[in-house]
Simulated assay, not measured.
Amino acid sequence: MALDHTAGLNSLGFAKPPSETRVVVAMSGGVDSSVVAAQLAEEGYDVVGVTLQLYDHGAALAKKGACCAGRDIHDARRVAEEMNFPHYVLDYENIFKDAVMDEFAESYLGGATPVPCIRCNERVKFKDLLETAKDLEADCMATGHYIQRKMGANGPELHSAEDSNRDQSYFLFSTTPEQLSYLRFPLGHLPSKEATRALAQKYGLPVADKPDSQDICFVPDGDYAKVIEKLRPGAAEPGNIVHADGRILGTHEGVIHYTIGQRRGLGIGGLSEPLYVVKLDVDTKEVVVGLKDMLATRNIPIKEINWLGDTVFEAVAEREILVKVRSTRPPRPAILRAKPGGFAEVELLSAEEGVSPGQACVFYEEGSTRILGGGWIWRGA
């Protein structure tokens, strides 16, 4: 763990011994959060492990790649027993369904492409769980996310992870300054995931070789449409697949089966040119397809801004920044313009393809690893 070398402070930034510092560790049952809990326990902190039961995990026991399932709860408990600290499982199924799963379904039915992991961090882990940590009289809450919290001139700042391949800043942009003051991310400074697994081996953790989660936790097989149909029976309605020039090319069983930028699996073979989904019109129930260049976008409207900069967001008339519009893409140069009411406009200096409503747009400071916040891409202009 990166130590805070300020005189008199322990490695979590408190002016007291680790044994007098209580830290709640959010434990998913994976190797990352297990290493965080084990390392803090070894350093002598008063560790309390908490695992959330987020959904009916009975059907997911045999599935690989799903977090917070029954196997993961078992693994988290084993780590706590071996490292000798208390561990609790909290039933958050109703909270998770109301705050994350229902919006996920509604967004897809509305033609958007949501990112439920961001909403889970924002509305469950860093809200309800964080309040639970305070109720347990913890000094802070630690997670296994790959991101860094650094002290700046105006307080804690959010920075990208040392390992850019593991960086999770895209999924944590909505962390508020108040939450950031309470959170700790002990893995953010590590050079690689291999370094994390080496620590797991060092502590003899039973999850040292456990595979990483790959899918959304409540969609362990990657079939989003099936989950949406279960949450909203009968809500997906058939319609036409329409070329941008107006030609009807085929039919579909619901817009929930398509995403902006999709090329494969459109069900309209035999055409001379590759076509992509360029628009999902839920009002007319049309999936609109066109040539790849129709996906190129430079101006992106943003709503629900979470700002982590040093000035008031409304004062940002125009600022050069870097932005990510998808988690798998590198930050791109852009101009940020603040609008009243928590809105903004981002102008990309070079066009980006496949920008989709429902995705996040995350702001990064030029020439720095600092995250300045972000917001949600929406339809308005």
Rank of each mutant, 00 (worst) to 15 (best):
A2T: 09
T6M: 12
N10Y: 10
F14T: 13
A15L: 07
S19L: 04
S19W: 04
E20L: 10
D32W: 07
S34K: 02
V35P: 01
V36N: 03
D46G: 08
D46Q: 05
V50R: 10
L54G: 06
G58T: 15
G65W: 06
G65R: 09
C68G: 00
N84E: 13
I95A: 13
K97P: 01
V115C: 03
C117G: 03
I118G: 08
L129R: 01
T132F: 12
K134I: 12
D139T: 12
C140P: 14
M141S: 06
Y146R: 11
M151R: 14
G152S: 07
A153R: 14
A153C: 11
N154R: 14
N154M: 09
N154D: 13
G155F: 03
P156I: 03
S164E: 08
Y170V: 11
Y182P: 11
L183H: 11
F185V: 08
E194L: 04
Y203L: 05
K210V: 09
D212Y: 03
S213Q: 00
A225E: 09
I228L: 02
R232Q: 07
G234D: 12
E237A: 07
G239S: 04
I256Y: 00
R263L: 07
G267C: 14
V278T: 15
L280F: 13
V287W: 00
V289M: 01
I302P: 01
D310T: 14
F313M: 03
F313D: 08
A315H: 06
V316L: 14
R319Y: 04
K324A: 05
I335Q: 03
R337M: 08
E345D: 13
P357G: 04
A360F: 11
R370V: 10
G373R: 04
G374W: 05
R379F: 12
G380L: 09
